[in-house]
Write a protein that binds this DNA or RNA. Sequence first.
DNA 1: CGCTGTATTGACAACGTTCAACGGTTGTGG
DNA 2: CCACAACCGTTGAACGTTGTCAATACAGCG
Lengths: 233, 233
Amino acid sequence: MRIDRTVVKQLPLFAKMNDADLDRLLDSATAKRVPQGEAVFEQGQNAISFFLLLHGRLKVLQVTEDGQQIIVRMVHPGDLFGFAKALQRMDYPGTAMAAAESVILCWPTDLWPQFVESNPSLAITTMQTIGQRLEEAHTRIREMSTQEVERRVAHVVARLTTTAGKKEGSGIRIDFPITRQDIAEMTGTTLHTVSRILSAWESKGLVEGGRQKLLVRDLNGIMLLANGGKERD
Amino acid sequence: MRIDRTVVKQLPLFAKMNDADLDRLLDSATAKRVPQGEAVFEQGQNAISFFLLLHGRLKVLQVTEDGQQIIVRMVHPGDLFGFAKALQRMDYPGTAMAAAESVILCWPTDLWPQFVESNPSLAITTMQTIGQRLEEAHTRIREMSTQEVERRVAHVVARLTTTAGKKEGSGIRIDFPITRQDIAEMTGTTLHTVSRILSAWESKGLVEGGRQKLLVRDLNGIMLLANGGKERD
DNA sequence: CGCTGTATTGACAACGTTCAACGGTTGTGG
DNA sequence: CCACAACCGTTGAACGTTGTCAATACAGCG
């Protein structure tokens, strides 16, 4: 099966590649559809492939020994994911699950060196990406150490709005099905607390809730909460 | 100034290098003594050097806009640190401060490519290190999301015991000056809570406290707490 | 039409923070 | 050498945010 290069050509990741190289790359790729709720790979599995998200939305989960779950991060269209081997790991450190129906490209991990060689800027981009992830993780640790729950939830909602927002009439819709439980797992709290916070926000006109839905009506207000709306100087 | 290769020869990082290459590397390095409490570099500074800790102990800090501090990680002898440039960053994401009197080697960041070239296994090791850090960060996020304070403190103490422990008579001494505040900043709590927990442990015979001191008497007991001493099956 | 998963809300408990006071140790300067 | 300040640590008490438990409601789906 041949994958048309137009589906990836506009991604910044491949912008600098010539068509021949790109075609060669795509020839070794497999496209796959992932229905909502299905896992692309599971935590602890042998890392035999790495992936690119073309369409849809994934969440990367980790499960603790006692069964609790956290969402490590969301994967957005255009993102590479599951490149554990690039970090010298044999297995996937988390589970990648489709939050919405998704389409991915898969390559065998053996091809990673080749992949990098035919697109040297990829090595740099990958390093940058990892660096960003590390920084994000530290930001999250800092927030969980020092900030109260409402502010953390505000931060997550603000980020989701900018990374997965879709303008819709009077506000911005989070463009994939998301539950209170999801938000709780992203912020390190319980769905109860999230529900209370969102209810409070709704009565203030900041957001509009709904079953697996979230519409942000006042992004500015949310961002104010996220950046410490209390003490300003 | 010439640095004798015997000071680094036994480090796993340089084990595979031949003496000539090693000498060349050391020729471009500067050795420096850092007194306790002094910073090697500060958060936000331009990343002009990368470093190796020869002796002593460093803590890497981040400060929030509102002045709160967290300890991102400890740096132990033999660790590379401050290689922001390898992650395509221009500035240091945190501050590296000497927790005890320390000795470091410094290289200009421009030499990083050369560094890697003359020691290819370094590229791999570095990737591994970064991967580990990312994983550690996620572990910490997971713990802060799901575990109570005492367990997190137990985990930190257990880790410190294995990475910076020194046998001393009836127990294991944490080998650098550490305050309750430090432990609080590593676990995302307050020095008060840490003090209470350590007092409780002391009365159970698990540890022995002291001013900027910590002696672990029953590592097993601590580890039991860290791994959920409550619910076992 | 009943079942399952999601969401809301109240009551309550608790863990941990905040506020406060105090004691001990270390280091400094007169 | 002593007095004093600065820092570190301990402990008590009160408060509050947030988690836990529980009951109910609602939507989607077979």
